[in-house]
Amino acid sequence: MDKIQDILMELAEGFGYTFALFAVTLLFALPLGLLFAFASMSKFKPLKWFMKTLIWVIRGTPLMLQILFMSFLPRYVFQSTTKAWAAALSISINDMMFLFVVLAFVLNYACYFSEIYRAGIEAIPVGQYEAGKVLGLSKNQIFSKIVLMQVIRRILPPMSNEIITLVKDTSLAQVLGVVDLLNAAKHAVNHYVILTPFIYATIFYLLFNGLLTLLLGWAEKKLSYYKV
């Protein structure tokens, strides 16, 4: 009985990291993605091409590679060490590793989100902008009062897919030794020599994704009070 409690405690702790990675990635990647989208549609060609190249590289390579790349930054690019960086930020080495993972995730997901934003923005008929213009609205007012709501509505289904994928991608954090839900389950399986931790982990993931699916489905329904 005690064993189950111990395992569940370990898994819950792992889930803490999983959830933190998930939440922080969303929190930063959602706005950063919009910024990336604007940059990739910029009339200023160098910015546009820089952004397009970055998005191409990030989307064309494994997320795991990007996480590893982040962790090698201090040594190979800045001629420093992870330890020194952690000390400079006065956090533990483990937290520093977690930070590398977060950076890679935010960058990666911002690139994916930016493509969704871009598709959503480009799908808005030009007539919507023109109607706003002839009504004397400024560019910003047209975006905030007319375009944005329509974009959000259009992109919610593909965003939902990415968000569900993000939940599962969090398990990649273990390449830098972060003890996320899956890693915690793996440790427990090895330590107690039973398979049940994997089943518990499965239930954790499914519950979390189920909740998200409900939430996103509700939002989608809320927003589809009109047809486009």
């Binding site: 008929p125 007539g127 919507q128 023109e130 213009k133 004397g136």
Partner: peptide, 15 residues
């Protein structure tokens, strides 16, 4: 622009 009002062929209402 407010000097001129405009009614478009395909309405362009905000959905």
């Amino acid at each position: 622009r407010l000097t001129f009002g405009m009614v478009f062929q395909n309405f362009n209402l905000f959905p």
